[in-house]
């Protein structure tokens, strides 16, 4: 059964005006990603990896070209539609965890659910499931500063998957972690794509991390190179 691609990108460009200078971050990128793939984006600094990821995830807009995710041309959505779309379809994992410091791990994981219609009992159940999945079932009531870096990043992954999105994007998720914690995080992301059917797109500089993916793409000066 040939699955429909979940991400369809055609001739995507992104340019920034820096002073009088036009900086090209993406230069005519075309790309299909299938559901359940674990795509790894690699390439030198400044090659446009983050920019591509941001556009696919709906937090940045392309200068030209189209990005269709799950059949929706996301460039055609307005700010508030895009926000709602992100809430339902995308989970974010950042290099620096980005948990809210005044909230416990469980409360951080619950945040995206506050925008849904779920009642508090149902929310708590989903939070527990997500924390269980990343092996933090017993750390829910800890605040971020009471967790190790690896635990914080796992909490962030729980937050990314608690709404059950089809797409998970991760920008250098292991960049701030030691080898052991990095391995844990990568294993979780891999199992999300293999066992839960999530599509994972990850940016990394580390070839060892890239080995966890199902496909690697190389970006160079805003273009995908073979």
């Amino acid at each position: 059964m040939a699955a429909e691609p979940i991400v369809v990108i055609r001739e995507l460009t992104k340019t920034y005006l820096q002073g009088d200078l036009n900086v090209t971050a993406l230069n005519g990128v075309s790309l299909d990603i299938l559901p359940g793939e674990f795509v790894v984006l690699m390439g030198p600094s400044g090659s446009g990896k983050s920019t591509l990821l941001h556009i696919i995830a709906g937090i940045d807009r392309p200068t030209s070209g189209s990005a269709v995710v799950q059949g929706i041309n996301i460039a055609g959505l307005n700010e508030s539609q895009l926000a709602e779309w992100r809430n339902q379809n995308v989970g974010f994992v950042f290099q620096s965890f980005n948990l809210i410091p005044v909230l416990t791990a469980a409360e951080n994981v619950e945040l995206p659910l506050l925008l849904t219609d779920l009642d508090s009992k149902e929310r708590r159940r989903q939070v527990a499931t997500a924390l269980e999945l990343v092996g933090l079932a017993d750390r829910g009531h800890h605040r971020p500063d009471q967790l190790s870096g690896g635990q914080q990043q796992r909490a962030a992954i729980a937050r990314a998957l608690v709404t059950d999105p089809a797409l998970i994007v991760a920008d250098e998720p292991t960049g701030n972690l030691d080898a052991k914690s990095a391995g844990d995080v990568l294993t979780i992301l891999q199992s999300l794509s293999r066992n839960a059917g999530k599509t994972v797109i990850m940016v990394t500089h580390d070839p060892k991390s890239a080995a966890f993916g199902s496909r690697s793409l190389h970006l160079e000066k805003g273009e995908i190179t073979p």
Partner: peptide, 16 residues
Amino acid sequence: FRELAVLKALGFRRRE
């Protein structure tokens, strides 16, 4: 600002 950006990424709209 950074936390607000994260909240935006998670789907919180300006009005919220």
